[in-house]
Simulated scan of single mutants.
Amino acid sequence: MSTTAPRGAAVALAAACVLLLAACGDPSGGETAEVANASGTRTKINLTADQNRVTTAKVDSIAAGVPARIRARGTLEVVGSSGSAAPLSFHATDDRTVIGVETDIAHLVADVLGLEPRIRTVSWENIFVGLDSAKYDVGFSNITVTEERKEKYDFATYRKDNLGFAAKKGSGLKVDGPEDVAGRAVAVSSGTNQEKLLVAWSEENEKAGRKPVDIKYYQNDTDTYLALRSGRIDLHLGPHPTAAYHAATTGQTEIVGTYSGAGAGLQGLVAATTKKDNGLVEPLADALDEIIRNGTYAEVLKRWGLSGEAVATSEINPPGLPRTGA
């Protein structure tokens, strides 16, 4: 459930609740990576194609609400990002099978709806192109609810959204607000809520007479982290879970600041995303509430070290990241 809180509280919550990780080798090399929740318990993440996913039963009353064309087809066409973003969505050690918390939650939702999930991965911008054209039914790809996106898409929330500023290990940097990134080179992915926040911070710096942020864009995380290690950029702003995972499994970076994905006064929320008014958002939200109720949702989050990002219920189109300048 989304709640409002002052910025300091949101940052403290992110730091306290989002996953902590203990390295067990590079995720591209070994078969497991060890994660630790805030409680201190540790779990080994399975990085192989043999996932043995958590499953759940079909609920006829919820499945009946799925639009007829999708029920007749018998599949749920799911789209996610092709970029590697462990533990959210990334390739297993076979370099083909897509695994991660996003994929697992999509499978659970499809189970409740009595549909066969077909997972497709595309570039970030093509997620929305595919949703617009109805090529895909729903996006499960760490998509944050924003006021701008709500004009074209319906959202059923399923995780808290917290962001992380990553720096080269031992950098001595600390990010608490816009002034801490003034004049610094910061990498961010285009078209994301992270970019919107960074642009807003840059504008705030200029209005305050400080230097703007030197915003940098890279094609993939590999290039971004190479630039970070070489000193070509000072910081990378991205989803906190992926930043924390990279820091722990490589030992080359560190988290130097956290922030809510919806901005200063609102807890960001990640949501299943579908074309507006296509009739699918209600059964998606009902399916998410079912897996929250029956405990399989908690199993999946624990499996990926993300228990701190749990929500109590799925909300349809809650308040999201405001428009820039709003």
Rank of each mutant, 00 (worst) to 15 (best):
S189E: 07
A86I: 01
V138Y: 00
R229H: 14
K174S: 11
G261M: 09
R293V: 05
I99V: 02
S84A: 14
A285M: 07
Y158W: 08
P6I: 07
T313Y: 11
I119L: 02
V54F: 02
V54D: 02
K196H: 07
H236Q: 09
Y218R: 06
P319H: 03
V300G: 05
G209V: 15
K207Y: 07
A312E: 09
M1V: 15
L163I: 05
A10Q: 06
A247F: 00
G8P: 01
S230R: 15
Y136K: 10
G100F: 03
P67E: 07
G231W: 03
G295C: 10
S123I: 12
I215D: 09
S133V: 03
A326C: 14
H246F: 04
D277A: 10
E195C: 15
S171R: 10
T43W: 03
L47K: 05
A271W: 05
V79M: 04
A14G: 09
G80I: 11
Y218M: 12
S39Q: 04
D234V: 06
S84E: 14
R293P: 04
V59M: 07
A49E: 07
G325R: 13
P319G: 12
H91E: 15
Y153G: 10
A185P: 12
P322C: 13
L20K: 11
A63Q: 00
A23N: 08
A208Q: 11
E34I: 12
T75F: 01
A156I: 00
A22N: 06
G80D: 11
A64I: 02
D180H: 00
E203A: 05
D60W: 02
V59P: 11
I99D: 08
C24F: 07
C24S: 15
A208T: 01
P117T: 00
G130T: 12
R42V: 09
V66R: 00
I255V: 07
K58A: 06
K174W: 02
Q267R: 12
S314A: 14
K152C: 13
F140V: 12
K302P: 13
E151Y: 02
T41M: 13
G320S: 07
I99G: 03
I291R: 04
A86D: 08
D214R: 08
T48C: 01
D176K: 04
D176F: 02
V213T: 04
K196W: 13
V270P: 04
K207L: 04
R303D: 13
E299A: 06
P322G: 06
A182E: 05
T97K: 02
L108H: 08
R73A: 13
A72R: 03
I127R: 08
C17T: 14
S61H: 02
V98P: 13
A134H: 14
Y217L: 05
V78A: 00
T324E: 15
K275N: 08
G139I: 01
D60E: 15
V35Q: 10
Y217N: 08
A208G: 11
A166E: 12
E203V: 10
E102L: 07
R7N: 10
T32E: 14
E206P: 10
G65M: 03
S28E: 14
E315P: 00
E309C: 11
D234H: 10
A63H: 00
R120L: 09
D180K: 01
L21W: 06
K207G: 11
K44A: 15
G40F: 06
K169T: 13
S81M: 14
G83D: 15
L173V: 13
E206S: 11
